[in-house]
Amino acid sequence: MPAPHNPFKAALATKTPQIGLWVSSAEASIAELLTSTGFDWMVLDGEHAPNDLRSLRDQLMVVEPSPSHGVVRIPVGEAWMVKQVLDAGAQTVLIPMVDTADEARDMASAMRYPPEGIRGMGASGGRVSHFGAIADYVATANDQVCLVVQAESRKALENLDEILSVDGVDGVFIGPADLSADMGYPGNAGAPEVQEAIADALQRIHASDKAAGILVQDLGAAQRFLDLGATFIAVGIDTVMFAKAARKLSADAKALL
């Protein structure tokens, strides 16, 4: 039996648009609820959300059987972190703050078993191989893992063409918040200079053999970025959605008094 098919990787390869959601709640019960909402993919955030390896594993366990695809973002681009989340069941890994082609190449190597990469041989005892039930996992896993790197600095955009040339990178995700801060506009991703840089980057990625991704929090921006060539777009953050809905309900109820 081979490694499970990765539908997200396949969609990125054909540049079939995918609508996603950022999941920062770090709770398997919330992730399970969100699998019923129709999103194509969900980022299980290990960089800014209070996740650890066990909570990421638990979320992967409830997302895996659903129509949504779990994308795990690790805190930083370290090979040992890549190895652990892959063995915990992730097929797609999102790496923050990738500024150079060498960094992207290191992450592509970390995702793959030798001779293509340096991933350690520990799958037979883990849930990624269904505890050894997927007999051909190691022989077939390289074809199903998916690597997305985040370009979220001026340096990354300067090196974007070189990053796009790296074999083993499936997509490049623009991080508007960190990019805007690095460009001198912290908290203002809507600044014209930032938006111009994002538009240029998305078009360059789309013109390559990689897929372009981005996070937005309004559908007008989502449409604009789709038109610019983005393939995978996250259109919200779960904790922000819950907080806005709860505040509105509270305010509307108190208005009855």
Rank of each mutant, 00 (worst) to 15 (best):
R105K: 15
R105S: 14
D106I: 06
M107I: 07
M107L: 13
A108K: 07
A110C: 06
P114Q: 11
E116S: 12
E116T: 07
G120D: 05
G120A: 15
G120N: 13
M121R: 10
G122A: 14
G122F: 12
G122S: 09
A123R: 04
A123F: 11
S124A: 15
S124K: 13
G125I: 12
G125D: 03
R127H: 05
R127W: 06
V128D: 09
V128E: 02
S129N: 10
H130Q: 15
H130V: 13
I134E: 13
I134Q: 09
A135P: 00
D136A: 13
Y137N: 02
A139N: 14
T140L: 09
A141Q: 10
V145T: 12
C146H: 01
C146S: 14
L147A: 10
V148P: 00
V148T: 14
V149T: 05
V149W: 06
A151P: 01
S153Q: 10
S153C: 13
R154I: 12
R154Q: 15
A156G: 10
A156N: 09
A156Q: 08
L157N: 04
L157S: 01
D161K: 13
D161S: 14
E162P: 08
I163G: 00
L164M: 12
S165M: 11
S165N: 14
S165P: 05
V166C: 06
G168Q: 07
V169I: 14
G171T: 08
V172S: 05
I174P: 01
I174A: 02
G175C: 06
P176M: 04
P176R: 05
A177R: 11
A177I: 11
D178Y: 05
D178W: 04
D178N: 13
L179F: 04
L179C: 09
S180Q: 06
D182S: 14
M183V: 11
M183F: 04
M183H: 09
M183S: 09
G184K: 08
Y185W: 12
Y185I: 06
G187R: 04
A189R: 12
A189I: 00
A189G: 14
G190P: 01
G190V: 03
G190Q: 11
A191N: 03
P192W: 06
E193Y: 07
V194K: 00
Q195H: 06
Q195G: 12
A197L: 03
A197R: 11
I198F: 02
I198A: 04
A201K: 07
L202G: 05
Q203R: 15
Q203I: 06
R204D: 03
I205H: 04
H206N: 15
D209R: 13
A211D: 02
I214C: 02
I214F: 01
V216R: 02
Q217M: 08
L219V: 09
L219C: 01
L219Q: 11
A221T: 10
A221R: 13
A222N: 02
A222H: 02
Q223H: 07
F225G: 00
L226M: 07
D227H: 06
G229D: 06
A230T: 03
A230V: 11
T231S: 10
T231H: 03
I233F: 01
V235I: 15
V235N: 04
D238V: 04
V240N: 08
F242P: 00
F242E: 03
